[in-house]
Design a protein around this nucleic acid. Sequence first.
DNA 1: AACCCGGGGGC
DNA 2: GCCCCAGGGTT
Length: 355
Amino acid sequence: MNPDEFQRRLLAWFDIHGRKDLPWQQGINPYRVWVSEIMLQQTQVASVIGYFQRFMDRFPTVHNLAQAELDEVLQHWAGLGYYARARNLHKTAQIVAANGGEFPHTLEQLSALPGIGRSTAGAILSIACGQSQPILDGNVKRVLARFHAVEGWPGESKIAAELWGISQRHTPSKRCGDYTQAMMDLGATLCTRSRPRCEACPVAQGCRARQLDRVNQFPAPKPRKDMPSRQIYFLVLHDSDGRILLQRRPATGIWGGLWSLPEFEDAQQLQSWAAQRDYRIGNPKILSRQRHSFSHYHLDYTPVLLPLQNPNNCVMEDGGLVWYKANEIHSLGLPAPIKRLLQQLYSEDQYDQNG
DNA sequence: AACCCGGGGGC
DNA sequence: GCCCCAGGGTT
């Protein structure tokens, strides 16, 4: 399927099924398209609609926005997230207003404005100015990666460059705004990340991924950065009264300042720690290793259950250590995996063993 | 709970 | 150029 047929089929589909009643598709001008594109950058259409309408009621023109206090702009953004977008929006409004209120009409000038990158600039120019400009947002990346079975993760610069080239070759010289809208609609409504509706897709017959029956393999997911993992032991020292020894964590680092289980690098450390405190302990019960993943590393922890046999040695609290009733742990701010572990153990009633 | 998203900014 | 970040939504 050549680009010409792709465009014809896509636009014919758009004429029937495309979304044309979204708030920012009414009274189209660069200001409204710009605001909507910024809002849509990391946010779904359904969430944006209300924000866009309230925003436009309050800031109907770029001059209103430029003259507003940043605080008020941020208030209108509250809940959308990525608040740098609102700051950039305000900054850019002031730049545009200072230049007479007219948005620049070239890709270079537009993408030089704060918060406007190549794709957003392309969207503004095609939708609001009728220029033939490619875009490459998340929807378009997915559509094109599938249609041409482009291997690799689109976040990789080489793959992105390839997709930009494809996007450019697909972009028509007529009905540029409709084409841009149509691509975004196709990605948002049919060519979705999961469970795409290929049977309804106007360009399915030319789709390389579909021909290969590999639609769900494109685009390749962001490679999971192989995170380092750390192996530790968590000590579950428990007495006959169903109390568990908790230890306050250092103020900094993971779970800073929270109560947790005493943590050890290896069994040797655990043993000498217990010996130092003159704990008389029964036989350890080593549970299977579990994993908790942080954003930057995996924590592989092995719970070691130790029954305490000389409860007389127990002090209620000393130096960051505290004995806590297992059935009262929910009242503490424990790290989620610790809480889960203790709840598992407690519900399985394992503290009643060994006196 | 993992994954996704456009652009900015630090290096 | 590469890597990381931001926050709410979807799956």
